[in-house]
Amino acid sequence: MNTEGLGTCLDNVRKASPLVHCITNYVTVNDCANAVLAIGASPIMSDEPDDVEDITSICAGLDLNIGTLNHRSIDGMDHAAAKAASLGHAIVLDPVGAGASKLRTETAKHLLDTYHPQLVRGNMSEIRALGGASASTRGVDVSAADAATEENLSEAAAFVAGLAKAWKCTVAVTGAIDIVSDGKRTSAIRNGVSLMGRITGTGCMLSAMLPAFLAANDDVYVASVAGISMMGICGEKARSRMAGEDGTGSFRTYLIDALSNIQGKELVASAKVADL
């Protein structure tokens, strides 16, 4: 992929400053809001069924994150997704913990099949569970048995591309190696650091930011690669700042700093994206 377009995607987010409706994990909601603000977009959080249709109507994108499900939030997601779909807004589905419980898996499948999100982003265990493939589960974390590695990358990429074709959307599997496919184009992204998996919410933050990338850009696949590459690069920048007794708390702060400071030209220069 020509990475020049990735920087333009980020620049477009900052120019458009889209409003993003997040129905997200209450464990990570504050970090999600701050991440969206850091990249120049604006977040609004609501999962109340009587509120969400009005809220999503004034937004440009919708984040559906099933990390902390309850029956009210499921009802809220249904109302918001129906409204967003009717308006042609960008919808991102994050099937957090799919495969860990019947409720999570069935809710994610319902949202996917009914509202046809433009992007589905999760770890490989979640995506395999959502796709009906056998998957190991460690709750909301990817199982080592499912993770994409250099050794199984071709097989993993073919699986993701197949789901993208079947679901008629872009599918992003994030992990040590990220895989993004729209069924026609597939890329591997090798940005990021392992420390990102030691703080809660990096995946939720990414899913909250991605509707802004989709709303501000025409090509869902390229916009998704841009947002995912940006997150990995910012993880690298945050890790490089750590010194002395800095730990995961400092890393979390440095990550938000990096998101607020990264520029399009830096994204172009640092993105490690390879076509598959």
Rank of each mutant, 00 (worst) to 15 (best):
C204E: 02
R252H: 14
N2D: 15
M242P: 09
E266K: 05
L276V: 09
L119S: 01
L62Q: 04
M230G: 03
Q263L: 10
A144Y: 12
L276R: 07
T105K: 02
A157N: 07
V13D: 03
D63A: 13
S270A: 12
A215Y: 07
G197D: 09
I262W: 03
R104N: 07
Y26G: 08
G175K: 00
D275P: 06
A166M: 11
N12G: 06
A176D: 08
N25I: 05
M124E: 03
R198I: 09
S86D: 14
L163W: 01
G40W: 07
D47P: 00
S229P: 01
G232S: 04
A129Y: 01
E266V: 02
H89I: 06
F251P: 00
V96T: 02
L37Y: 06
V225N: 01
Y115S: 01
G247L: 13
L64N: 03
S154F: 15
S73D: 12
R138F: 03
N217M: 08
T107P: 00
L10F: 10
N152C: 12
G249S: 14
L87G: 06
L195V: 12
I39E: 00
V180Q: 00
A148E: 05
D257S: 09
D63Y: 07
H21C: 08
I74E: 08
V29I: 13
E53K: 10
R72S: 14
A144R: 11
G99C: 02
V193S: 06
V142E: 08
Q263S: 08
N34P: 10
K165N: 15
N123Q: 05
C59R: 03
G139E: 07
G203S: 08
V268I: 14
A269S: 13
G264H: 01
T186A: 13
A212W: 04
L163N: 02
L6W: 00
V52A: 07
A172V: 06
A81S: 14
Q118T: 04
E151I: 15
A238H: 06
I189E: 00
I23P: 00
E245K: 14
A208N: 09
A172K: 00
C204Y: 04
V173A: 08
C234D: 04
S154P: 11
V120M: 01
A164E: 03
M242L: 15
K83G: 03
F213C: 03
I228Y: 06
S270Y: 11
I74C: 13
Y221C: 04
V173H: 01
M209L: 13
L64W: 04
S136P: 01
L103T: 12
T24H: 11
T137E: 07
S270D: 12
Y254A: 11
C234P: 02
E150Y: 10
L153E: 11
V180W: 00
S73I: 15
K83A: 10
S134V: 11
C9K: 06
E53R: 11
T107A: 09
Y254F: 14
R72A: 13
M205T: 08
G201C: 09
I58R: 14
L103M: 15
R138E: 09
E151V: 15
A16S: 14
L10H: 05
L153D: 10
G232R: 00
G227R: 03
I23S: 00
